[in-house]
């Protein structure tokens, strides 16, 4: 089997997902045996501007330059994998969309802001078609590998469309609400094997919401636990602000 030409690219992000991949250890060597890696800024200096079988995209689209660049990558790639929250759901970059763009520019660049024109943050699929998504901040490596093998097999990968709670209970974690901690697990898409809760953290909703989250019910639950709504909206917007672009666009 001919190894597919594969490149990793990054847009607005922390490059942490690339780091996850770069840090896979022996598994990375196995992956290298499957693909013909032609560009991956974090692990190699070579560049590639030819056609690609697989383009793996980290980061979100936040300015005109990025929009043009992702469109060009799309044009020369057979398969596009968005990976990491920034790419799949806009992620933390989406928080920008809660503010006026001029205000954002002022705050970050002050006087020089005219040299750095900015746009609303968008997830990759909100700009170009995407074949596969690996959610998470950072990506959960077992899921990344499942998606990669699916892409190599040429078959779809379905992100689970149910709450993190399903996996969290299977891991027999104590529910964080039993300890008085607000957790976004009940409305967040599973697929991470409740990675954060297993390790003593809580769910921040980095994988995006289930396709029909019951918002009213969630509010009722939070009221019962005396959690202020503003607090939770902020918490949800931390990763999921770009979701409203999906709703308006569809």
């Amino acid at each position: 089997m001919k190894r597919p030409k594969t490149a990793f690219f990054d847009f607005a992000c922390c490059e942490g997902c690339q780091l996850q991949v770069a840090n896979m250890g022996d598994t990375l060597l196995e992956v290298m045996g499957l693909i013909d890696l032609v560009e991956f800024r974090e692990v190699m200096s070579e560049k590639w501007d030819g056609d690609l079988d697989i383009a793996v995209i980290e980061g979100s689209i936040t300015d005109l330059h990025a929009t043009e660049r992702i469109k060009a990558i799309r044009k020369r790639s057979k398969v596009l994998i968005a990976y990491g929250s920034c790419a799949t759901i806009g992620g933390v970059n989406g928080m920008k969309n809660s503010f006026d763009l001029d205000e954002v520019g002022d705050c970050v660049y002050g006087e020089g802001r005219w040299f750095f024109p900015t746009e609303q943050t968008r997830a990759i699929h909100q700009v170009v078609p995407v074949e596969y998504a690996v959610n998470g901040c950072p990506v959960y490596i077992p899921e990344f590998l499942s998606v990669l093998t699916a892409a190599l097999q040429g078959i779809p990968y379905a992100v689970p469309d149910y709450a993190v709670c399903i996996e969290c209970r299977m891991n027999e974690n104590e529910c964080l609400y039993d300890r008085g901690i607000t957790c976004l697990g009940p409305v967040t898409r599973a697929g991470c094997n409740s990675w954060c809760v297993n390790n003593g953290n809580l769910c921040y909703g980095c994988r995006g919401m289930v396709s029909s989250p019951y918002v009213k019910g969630m509010k009722q639950v939070l009221e019962k636990h005396h959690v202020p709504i503003d607090f939770v909206v902020n918490k949800m917007d931390m990763y999921n602000k770009c979701r409203e672009l999906d709703r308006n666009g569809r």
Partner: peptide
């Protein structure tokens, strides 16, 4: 339509 059926077609 799904994973298996698409793969069958190949």
């Amino acid at each position: 339509v799904g994973r298996v059926t698409k793969a069958l077609h190949a």
